[in-house]
Design a binder for these strands. Structure first.
Lengths: 215, 215
DNA sequence: AATCATCTGGGACGCTTGACCAACTCGCCC
DNA sequence: GGGCGAGTTGGTCAAGCGTCCCAGATGATT
């Protein structure tokens, strides 16, 4: 409980709040518990933040940006879209399975924000970030595999996000990893069927794999 | 506030609790608010229920069974699987869009049950019911369209439930009905591609549409 | 009419919560 | 070295929570 700069204390409290919320859920995330987890006094919470809501907004911001960064996976060029999509989702799955509490917290925060008046913009922002990440990933796949998507990108991004959300949510309930992974891979394969190989005179510099035999 | 049999009072309190939870969220669903909504005294809550938890369990049970019944849609025979799947999901969507609060409450209850020690079995039960409903619907489609599914039913049911959950969750956040419906229909079409028409000497009476040209 | 189980109402208990305050301590700068 | 502001501390506040209790009203049974 030494003397710490207010900015550092702020960060400590935010991280402590995340830990508590992951472990016990947002409903059980009280100012006292946060302070205890951070090794600070209760009063320091209201010294560093105007209110509990301001703290939780910072928590939400931190989680969203952290998740957005974690979702950024590299896409190897010269591979077909189906494989890339499957590999990307499997890589994401490793992260999800590693920290279930964080995923659970993400959903809880979404619903919490939806209920709290004035905080619903945070839920919207959270999903806009997610859709943007999905769009970016799908476009990276298109570029790497030399294909085009047969549906407009907003629809496609929403479909991908839908699949991820649904699978994760189902898994959080029964923790049936094989079943969840099977559904995820199957849905990824289905999404991959929306990739069309454009006429070869259209795209040139893109990496092409063997099965580009014009019909 | 007249005199009511304990059994009736029980039912009134459960329905009142559902209304409050739909409107304000589970976190704001207190015993006092429930009693006020039901037009009963606070003490009657603990006269009809051993504890608040027992009440909430009844609420969860009521919502799950109600939702399971609502999801049971008729499937017209003689139509192709794609159309049936699309129509079924569109019919479900009408229900979802009509009462957003109930959908939101469903998710909140899931997460609530997952956190509450000893109540996680309710979350599991909720999803088992849902998977069962999906399985039943998919098998009804298979029978009506005279097709077979190219994946094992458990995987397929989970895929369908994943799609529904994901779409509804996304819609609850941004309330973008066209986008949600577009994603839902697109995903339904993708799922329909998993329907295979068996050799005609296997099934006889089933209705067949035109595109049965053996390759 | 008397009895009895059933149901209601108001009040109270003990606890937790978010928020706040005045007093105190430390380190830095003029 | 004496002020001074940033940071800490324990205590306190009102509000709200789940739970419990008990005197009294009610309606059926005898």
């Amino acid at each position: 409980m030494g003397r710490v700069a207010a900015g550092d204390r702020r960060q400590q409290l935010i991280e402590a709040a995340i830990r508590v919320a992951e472990r016990d859920g947002i409903a059980a995330t009280t100012t006292r518990r946060i302070a205890a987890e951070a090794g600070a006094s209760l009063a320091s919470v209201h010294y560093c933040f105007r209110s509990k809501q301001e703290l939780l907004q910072e928590v939400l911001t931190a989680i969203i940006t952290e998740l957005a960064e974690a979702a950024r996976g590299e896409v190897r060029p010269g591979i077909d879209a189906g494989t890339l999509l499957r590999e990307g989702l499997q890589a994401l799955w490793v992260i999800v399975e590693k920290e279930p509490g964080k995923q659970q917290l993400t959903y809880e925060l979404t619903h919490y924000a939806l209920r709290q008046p004035g905080m619903d913009s945070f839920a919207l922002w959270q999903y806009e970030m997610s859709y943007a990440a999905c769009s970016a990933h799908l476009e990276a796949i298109a570029a790497a595999a030399g294909i085009t998507w047969s549906r407009p990108m907003p629809v496609l991004a929403r479909m991908l996000m839908t699949v991820i959300d649904g699978v994760v949510l189902g898994w959080l309930v029964d923790r049936d990893s094989p079943a969840a992974l099977a559904a995820l891979v199957s849905l990824a394969d289905l999404l991959a069927t929306l990739a069309v190989t454009p006429p070869s005179d259209e795209l040139e510099g893109a990496a092409l794999d063997g099965d580009l035999s014009p019909g």
